[in-house]
């Protein structure tokens, strides 16, 4: 199988820092591979291991430092990596990002069988890029996937986690799958893998190299504008009972629920 994985470098949302104006600080924050993309990479490598002759190409759009997540993907077991980087990509929303990835995939891996993405990126949490990419590529898609099996060379079966349970979808290839947390965990790169990643040349392509007109790139190619972002007011802790007799604590809780008129 010829597999493409799209990955994004995101700030570690567990350790965000805010300045005095409650704006997100971009510096001094650790950047990581989007956790959902790690599952996409792991899934791709498992498919490659199960199907001889497969190849996994990983693509990321971002600044030069995003090469770090591409190196991690190579270290985990992907074969090739490309960075898409251009000032013209700045300000891209999910719509423009999906369109950029579409141009890159058509240029760099035109004969792909399967594209894997994370369901969400933990920074913008939009969940739009994957399905929109499928639409631009003109191929089918399944979102919220937690497991992928290959039925035959031209078909996959994807387990999709929804409100009611799990749906098993059959999808004709080529197609796009958007990965949630899976039944398995992403592997930690081996030392050998890290050494290979350090030796691997990661080419950078700009808008022109992937045939993307600049009026379709970045903010120009976006269908939405973010007016402002602000820190969500942090919820304040309320009453706390410590060291009370269990029945007293329970009675206090029931009293609190009565006060709030929910009992």
């Amino acid at each position: 199988m010829n597999i493409v994985v799209c990955v994004k470098q995101v700030p570690d949302t567990a350790h965000l820092k805010f300045d005095a104006n409650n704006q997100l600080m971009r510096e001094g924050v650790e950047n990581i591979m989007n956790p959902f993309d790690e599952y996409a990479v792991e899934t791709a490598i498992r498919l490659k291991e199960a199907h001889e002759g497969s190849k996994v190409t990983v693509i990321s759009m971002g600044p030069a430092q995003a090469k770090e997540v591409l190196k991690r993907a190579i270290a985990m077991g992907c074969d090739d990596a490309f960075l898409l980087s251009d000032d013209a990509f700045n300000g891209a929303d999910s719509w423009a990002s999906a369109n950029t990835l579409k141009h890159a995939i058509q240029k760099l891996v035109p004969d792909f069988d399967l594209v894997l993405t994370g369901q969400f990126a933990t920074d913008d949490m939009s969940g739009i890029t994957g399905p929109a990419l499928a639409e631009f590529l003109g191929v089918p898609s399944v979102t919220f996937c937690k497991r992928v099996d290959v039925a035959d060379p031209k078909t996959v079966q994807a387990h999709r986690e929804v409100e009611q349970g799990v749906e098993v979808f059959q999808m004709a290839l080529p197609g796009v799958l958007c990965m949630m947390k899976c039944d398995y965990e992403p592997r930690i790169p081996s030392i050998k893998g890290v050494m290979k990643a350090n030796r691997t040349e990661i080419p950078t392509h700009d808008a022109a190299a992937i045939g993307l007109p600049t009026d379709q790139a970045g903010a120009n190619g976006s269908t939405t504008v973010t007016l402002k972002t602000w820190r969500r007011p942090k919820k304040e802790g309320g009453k706390k009972i410590d060291g009370a007799d269990p029945q007293v604590a329970v009675n206090e809780l029931i009293g609190f629920l009565r006060e709030r008129k929910v009992i």
Partner: peptide
């Protein structure tokens, strides 16, 4: 916002060149 709308509405937005704000 359900697993259904988050599955197909981004494709509708892509096809109709619309802006979409999720969730």
């Amino acid at each position: 916002a359900t697993s259904t709308s988050r599955d197909f509405m981004p494709r509708v937005a892509a096809r109709t060149r619309a802006g979409i704000a999720p969730d």
